[in-house]
Nucleic acid binder design. Structure first.
Lengths: 185, 185
DNA sequence: GTCGACATGTAACCAGTTACATGATTAA
DNA sequence: TTAATCATGTAACTGGTTACATGTCGAC
């Protein structure tokens, strides 16, 4: 693997390490409450990426003995690693975003579905989106205005905007379907 | 591969075939102007999925000789195929959606970026989102109110909602960044 | 003693992408 | 003759997921 052509997840891990030394376990937790909304590597992938970072000289590993908990290995980003990260951040050729939504796919074929099943799926989407919006709203209250979290907050805003848009949209669709049923009745 | 555990793309192709007989090439075009926003298989995958559908008995293949164009193979969904599709549509256990946005990832680490580079990336997002919103808006004018396109229209609305939300969000972030610069100046 | 949090990995798999390959027909 | 559209695939690869495996420590 060419140093200039690494998967995005490599840089995601590297970037998280700029917030401080972390173990694979720490990173896994960190992902959930930070970049998880738009980038969520599997646990096993985090561990293998960490090995890669060490191989590349982008991070150093250190074993930490603990008495109250199992031992762990923490990783610290190196100068070389930071350089690589900055180069990636400034590269204009970004991997393009990907969005896959099997529920929209089902809705597209909605004419083949029972209205009840369809409505249930839409209620599901709506509930999930509303739940996510609530969660993110809570995080927002914690980090809004904190200068050190300015950029993370900007990405949180994206998540909130999408979650709210999704919830509103699902409502809209449910209303449209309801109106159609009235007409055909 | 178990019949009850096929990849979503298999059903995506199957679903498109409910709109009429199509060749791999037709499907490829169809995807672009329909489900492409939330499900976009590669061309090569479409062809291999078609083979799978035939193997499973979910579609039948027919060679069509053409004089003005290269010959082609068109595919028609079978009764068995429609049954499998309906079963999938009504299954409550949906594969969950996936969203990957490397640009949000970069923004999360924005404190390591030059403001100009960051602004350029955000302008890029904004431009793309606005462009998509315009495109989808045009399609909307064509299918809005057409009863046969009701469900596709509902999914289009989702695309529009997200594209608009993204454009607004990008503007918001650019404004926030601008304000911060004023303060620190 | 058992549950939950902490902690680190391996192995197998495959969906999906990218690059490559080929060729017909039409229109500019 | 060049480009665009139509048309169908193969081969190689890999990023990422899922399931499995193993264990420590503290609290209840």
């Amino acid at each position: 693997m060419d140093e200039r052509n690494l998967p995005t997840t490599t840089f995601a891990i590297l970037g998280m390490l700029t917030f401080g030394e972390m173990s694979g376990y720490d990173l896994s937790k960190f992902v959930e409450k930070s970049i998880g909304y738009f980038w969520s590597p599997a646990k096993s992938q985090i561990y293998s990426e960490l090995r890669r970072l060490v191989d590349l000289g982008f991070a150093v590993e250190q074993e930490v003995r603990q008495e109250d908990r199992p031992d762990k290995r923490v990783y610290r980003i190196t100068g070389e690693g930071e350089e690589a990260l900055r180069a990636w951040l400034h590269d204009q050729e970004v991997e393009q975003e990907s969005y896959k939504n099997p529920l929209l796919l089902k809705l597209f074929f909605g004419r083949l579905m029972d209205h009840d099943a369809l409505r249930a799926q839409l209620e599901g989407i709506k509930g999930q989106a509303a739940g996510l919006a609530r969660e993110l709203g809570e995080v927002e209250r914690q980090i809004k205005g904190e200068e050190e979290f300015f950029y993370p907050y900007m990405t949180l805003k994206a998540g909130l905007a999408h979650a709210r848009a999704t919830a509103r949209w699902a409502d809209d669709v449910l209303r449209h379907i309801g109106e159609r049923e009235e007409v055909s009745r």
